[in-house]
């Protein structure tokens, strides 16, 4: 099977300042790639380069075999859907208006949204189960609701690759779980229309829970790439994060989690 998203020897950074280099990986349609790495490791910069918000310093990004270099913002938006960490909206648009903005790339610069655009926005709202929020004020909904709406907006965009930058940052526990469930569901798709999903996180459990592949970005290098079980080990966590963890299997299906070893209340020290 050919890769939906193929990154070849990518170097990225801000102008002269190269943040990372030699990054290469492939993700197929319907697969979830989790990007792990410490703060300052270059995750956000890599994402911006994937999306074309920053020009690559070297190498290339291919979608379905096509080199994305020189693509217009519109063409990129038809290939990549982007869920930013925190939506920068400052004006009281309704959630429906916000999701409808996901259709921007599907119509001409001067034209109003067509019936098909409204339908796509409604479908995205329904698919994420937030139809009841449609008329709500963007500035008056919770962080979790906003994150769902941003995912709905990216979905309305009908992209082939969905890029989420720390989608669960600053969400409460319940919302974290709900967002991850949705992300996995979008990759699984409804009858073979699965998206390629790339997301970044600081929680290795999330990789165990929903990712097919894990990429570890450390000091601008892709030091490891593979299945979550192969990549996330006690040795790796020690090397990258400088903490001792125990990787244990829990529950009936043996899903793995990372437990920090040194993190115990005094009373519990055995």
């Amino acid at each position: 099977m050919s890769a939906r998203l193929l990154v070849e020897d990518l170097a990225f950074g801000y102008g002269e300042r190269v943040v990372g280099a030699g990054v290469g990986f492939a993700v197929a349609a319907g697969e979830v790639l989790c990007l792990l790495g410490p703060n300052g490791g270059g995750k956000t910069t890599l994402f911006k380069t994937l999306l074309g918000l920053l020009p690559p310093c070297g190498g290339r990004v291919r979608v379905d075999g096509e080199d994305t270099a020189g693509w217009s913002p519109r063409r990129r938006a038809l290939a990549f859907g982007y869920v930013p960490q925190a939506g920068a909206g400052q004006f009281p648009f309704t959630v429906r208006e916000m999701v409808l903005m996901g259709r921007t790339a599907h119509r001409g610069a001067f034209s109003a949204p067509a019936a098909s655009d409204h339908a796509a926005a409604e479908a995205a709202l329904e698919r994420l189960g937030i139809g009841h929020l449609a008329e709500r004020d963007w500035l008056r909904i919770s962080g979790g609701e906003r994150q769902m709406a941003l995912i709905a907006r990216a979905l309305a965009q009908a992209p082939r690759v969905l890029v989420l930058d720390e989608p669960t940052a600053s969400l409460d526990f319940g919302n974290q779980v709900r967002v991850l469930e949705q992300v996995r569901r979008l990759a699984d798709g409804e009858g073979g229309d699965g998206l390629t999903v790339v997301f970044s996180t600081h929680h290795p459990e999330q990789a165990f829970a929903i990712a097919d592949r894990v990429a570890l970005l450390h000091d601008g290098r892709l030091t490891r790439f593979g299945t979550p079980e192969a990549v996330i080990t006690a040795a790796m966590m020690r090397e990258v994060y400088g903490t001792e963890v125990e990787v244990v299997a829990v529950g009936a299906d043996g899903m793995r989690v990372c437990l920090p070893v040194g993190l115990r209340r005094p009373a519990q020290v055995r």
Binding site: K48, L51, G52, L53, S72, P73, R74, R75, R76, A77, L78, F80, Y82, P84, G87, A88, M101, G102, T104, A105, Q157
Partner: peptide, 10 residues
């Protein structure tokens, strides 16, 4: 950034 990602030549 968001506008570019949505396909607008800002």
């Amino acid at each position: 950034e968001e506008a570019t990602a949505l396909g607008v030549p800002v």
